[in-house]
Design a protein around this nucleic acid. Structure first.
Length: 904
RNA sequence: GGGGAUUUAGCUCAGUUGGCUAGAGCGUACGAUUCACAUUCGUAAGGUCACAGGUUCAAGCCCUGUAAUCCCCACCA
């Protein structure tokens, strides 16, 4: 016996993964590059009946990080899909990736530098890039091992790293095209800037948090009259950058002051009073100071009124362009000083506490400073418009559906995209600035791919490299294109991707940009469907976080319960787009299913072994005389066929299990088509456990049909394989009659069965359940052993005595022969009794009364429905008939139970 | 301010086009036990489908309103 009594995942998983990988089964069958084997000069892939392809990319995990629970979910989802399609015969390509994780890795590395007592400013960009490269290379590998541990059937030879040459190449090609198309521009704008990391961010990377703050009222005195304006601000230190104060043009209080000058406190500067809609008469005093260089709204006001932009805060968060007293102070110190000085001059007229939202760095939590900087921007209007057009044409199907509208809404309001980052770890921006003022005819900036050079020469003019790198999302937006080897010449049968699976939280940052970029570069949407998963929350529905200490590590669970258990557990009870709780319990349930399946296989193998031994002795030990030739085998129809494997008719569980397995297969197929993973798993779980093990295998302990046992086990193993790849493969390798890998076998065809026989077994199940229920509700314990089962005039019971006896464990089943005794079961269509003595029946009286009442209530409800003429006239005929039948059934049941009660 | 969701058993969730007595897992209670599996088997209890109206022969599902929870976007001088 090869099978241990329980499934130990640790003993099998890594060997199995190794065998899969070594045999190359994760590679797609249809090549990714043109092939011309017949030498006719044409791409064979296009000539042949194109095999169906399935392609999906892995959202690249951080190359030097570890997987978290979200990755665990992503891989469970993506790999289940991939394996399912592989079994269905599609040329399936699951493309793995690794992310240089620009900013994240940089933050980690910069901390490392600090530990060593260095700062980034001691090195130039190329040095830093090389240092980080080495750092990442040294840390790399864990992630990829963890992806393997989760069972991802991805094609490792095709792993794409976000800094691979082909990626950089593609990004430069796009950038050049955009530059030539006028979609890229350099602009001085206010950008969100982290003074700690000294880099700018895109809007999307900013984290807004509500915080308590103080609103100070400051007096600005008018120059030509003894009057003053009170302005309110949360940032008094920025007053040095004020270049105007604004009032609403409709505000009667201040109309006469528009155009006058006020003196900027603590300075000698005079600034004008301007009229602008931005000033809200309802808010505070209705007067607002305008600091174009340090506030987003003020920046726009400044544009409208042509105001100067006076930058008073440096990139490292210190005061500049101010009088000596304040120069060099940190913004926080400067604020204190300004408040103190204003108070002394009696210009501070009030303060109050408010709650307002403040922008923070999503990595270090530092308050972001709006900073005036020259950056590269993408003009997104056209790109977004094209994306919206294709989305509205329903070219991409979303799961959940509503996310499409959310995305369209986002694209409609999208602002230009800042793609410059002031960190060295990333793809260098391929732009060079003219370094020769005398060359007036030459453009200020030129595109050039030679970013390894700090300066280049073109046409006798010297140009200097821009030191910035790309926003990670700029390159990531190319992911479907670079992963599938699409280019302008090579037709890739894998582009567009069949499905893009990723977190709902990066719908805007990533999915939106992939769509825009895909359309811009290839003219096609980059994927046909989008499946978005939500956050995995802890068991109480709270976000997992290090500070809360509720983080679950997927690899720990894999180690403890096995990869399959983790996958089954994390898929269960989860639907698209929803943030849902997760607990170890669901993984334990998955572990139990794996073990159940293992033991099912162990039982079947032992039956197969025994039969083979018996055959070799020449006596059909398990093929009793009852056996008749019966047609059941694979095939598409329900109709019995005469040429198939034979098996015994007496055990009607055989037809029944075929019916149930067929319906399970149909359900799973439907669920996979509609991305309802949890439902697919649930269906399989119930079919394998509740139906196959608890009813069919129990029945097979009486009549063994080895051929069918083999066939049905294979079917269930294959159907579960996408979700639980390891245990199904381990069993496949352990049972004696299968060949090759289950991972590359074919999705099962439907089984043939006789519907009448199947329905008969369903009736037997109902009888058995009723017997069990009644036995449990009788007084005393061990009732099953005490009472015999009696029946009258019932061929179903008569023909299946042994089966019913085994399933109910009653000591005997006898034909009454017309003289009823004992306790009659509450079954409408069968006359079945438990041979229970009078004394016990009397004790059962109460339960019987309750049962009669319950059936009576059901009957009343049905009658009420039938009495309503609107129902009988307007409801579909089959429903009305069903109701009528039910009434008849309930009535007869009640009268029988009442008879029983009368006897007592 | 704008938008998106969620609310069904003690907990976590299904319930697809309105149509049988609203389901599952976990948990709970009771019972079983050599003979594949205690990671087991059997049975049961447990529901005002958030609330209030409406449409319909029929509503967990559709419509209107209310409440609570969560998320996103914008703004907050």
């Amino acid at each position: 016996m090869k099978f241990a009594s329980s499934y130990e995942p640790g003993e099998y998983e890594s060997d199995i993964y190794g065998a899969w990988e070594a045999s190359g089964i994760f590679k797609p069958q249809v090549p990714t590059y043109p092939v011309d084997n017949d030498g006719d000069g044409k791409d064979d892939r296009l000539e042949s009946k194109t095999a169906k392809t399935f392609s999906i990319v892995m959202p690249p995990p951080n190359a030097n990080g570890n997987l978290h629970i979200g990755h665990g979910l992503t891989i469970a989802l993506e790999d289940s899909l991939t394996r399912y399609h592989r079994l269905r015969g599609d040329s399936s390509w699951y493309i793995p990736g690794a992310d240089h994780a620009g900013f994240e890795t940089w933050v980690v590395y910069e901390r490392e530098l600090e530990k060593q007592g260095h700062t980034r400013f001691e090195y130039d960009r190329d040095d830093l890039y090389n240092k980080v490269w080495d750092f990442v290379a040294a840390q790399r590998g864990n992630m990829e091992l963890q992806v393997r541990a989760l069972g991802a059937s991805c094609s490792w030879d095709d792993l794409t790293f976000t800094l691979d040459e082909n990626v950089i190449d593609r990004v430069y090609t796009t950038f050049e095209k955009m530059w030539n198309d006028g979609l890229i521009y350099r602009g001085e704008k206010l950008v969100n800037y982290c003074p700690k990391h000294q880099t700018a961010f895109a809007d999307i990377e900013v984290e807004h948090k509500d915080e308590k703050g103080t609103l100070w009222d400051i007096e600005y005195k008018l120059v030509d009259r003894p009057a003053s304006l009170i302005v309110s601000t949360t940032r008094p230190e920025t007053l040095f950058g004020d270049t105007a104060v604004a009032v609403n043009p409709e505000d009667e209080r201040y109309k006469s002051l528009i155009g006058k000058m006020v003196k900027l406190p603590l300075t000698d500067r005079l600034i004008p009073v301007i009229a602008d809609e931005h000033a809200d008469p309802e808010y505070g005093t209705g007067v607002v100071k305008i600091t174009p260089a340090h506030d987003f709204d003020d920046f726009e006001v400044g544009e409208r009124h042509n105001l100067d932009r006076v930058q008073v805060i440096s990139e490292d968060g210190h005061m500049v362009n101010v009088s000596e007293k304040y120069f060099g102070l940190s913004t926080a110190d400067c604020r204190k000083q300004v408040l103190k000085d204003l108070k002394e001059k009696d210009l501070l007229k009030g303060e109050k506490q408010i709650v307002h939202s403040v922008a923070h760095c999503y990595k270090c939590g530092t308050v972001l400073e709006p900073m005036l900087k020259e950056q590269w921007f993408v003009d997104v209007k056209k790109l977004a418009a094209v994306a919206i057009e294709h989305l509205e044409d329903n070219e991409i199907k979303f799961h959940p559906e509503n996310k499409k509208l959310v995305l369209i809404d986002y694209l409609k309001n999208l602002k230009d995209w800042n793609i410059s980052r002031q960190i060295p770890w990333g793809i260098a921006i391929p732009m060079f600035r003219k370094d020769d003022a005398s060359a007036t005819d030459e453009p200020d900036w030129i595109f050039d791919r030679r970013t390894n050079l700090k300066e280049i020469e073109k046409g006798g003019v010297k140009y200097v490299r821009d030191e910035d790198t790309f926003d990670t999302w700029f390159s990531s937006s190319h992911w479907p294109i670079v992963c599938t080897d699409w280019d302008e010449e090579n037709y890739s049968p894998y582009y567009p991707l069949n499905v893009m699976e990723t977190g709902a939280d990066i719908l805007f940052a990533w999915v939106a940009r992939m769509i825009m970029m895909g359309l811009y570069i290839t003219g096609k949407v980059p994927f046909r469907e989008v499946y978005l998963h939500g956050l995995v929350l802890d068991e109480h529905g709270k976000k997992m976080s290090k500070s809360k200490g509720n983080v679950i590590n997927p690899i720990d669970l894999v180690t403890k319960y096995g990869s399959d258990a983790f996958r089954l557990g994390i898929l269960r009870g989860r639907s698209a787009g929803m943030n849902q709780a997760f607990s170890e319990n669901s993984v334990i349930a998955g572990r139990n299913l794996a073990n159940k399946l293992w033991n099912i296989s162990r039982l079947i193998q032992s039956i197969v072994d025994e039969e083979e031994t018996a055959d070799s002795r020449g006596s059909g030990a398990w093929q009793g005389e009852d056996e008749r030739a019966r047609p059941v085998a694979t095939g598409a129809s329900d109709a019995p066929r005469e040429d198939a494997i034979s098996f015994s008719t007496d055990n009607m569980g055989e037809d029944w299990i075929c019916r149930e397995i067929n319906s399970c297969l149909e359900q799973v197929e439907q669920d996979m088509k509609t991305y309802r993973f949890a439902e697919a798993v649930e269906t399989l779980y119930q079919t394998i456990w509740d139906k196959y093990a608890d009813w069919f295998l129990e029945s097979q302990k009486i009549f063994k049909n080895t051929a069918l046992l083999k066939k049905t086990l294979e079917t269930l193993l294959i159907a579960l394989h996408p979700f639980a790849p390891f245990v199904t493969e381990a069993i496949w390798q352990n049972i004696s009659w299968t060949e090759g890998f289950i991972a590359t076998t074919n999705w099962p065809e439907k089984l043939q069965y006789d519907p009448i026989s199947a329905e008969n077994f369903e009736n037997i199940r109902i009888i058995v359940s009723e017997v069990r229920t009644t036995l449990q509700s009788l007084p005393g314990t061990n009732n099953a052993k005490k009472y015999e089962l009696l029946y009258d005039n019932d061929s179903l019971v008569a023909e299946n005595e042994l089966l019913i006896k085994t399933l109910t464990r009653v000591p005997a089943i006898n034909n009454l022969g017309g003289s009823p005794r004992g306790l009659r079961l509450a079954l409408a269509n069968h006359e079945i009794y438990l041979d229970v003595p009078e004394s016990v029946i009397k004790e059962y009286r109460e339960a019987l009364t309750e049962k009669i009442l319950a059936v009576g209530r059901e009957l009343d409800a049905l009658n009420l429905r039938m009495e309503n003429p609107n129902y009988t006239e307007r409801a579909p005929a089959h429903l009305v008939k069903e109701t009528q039948d039910k009434i008849t059934e309930k009535q007869s049941l009640i009268s029988r139970l009442k008879q029983q009660l009368d006897i007592i």
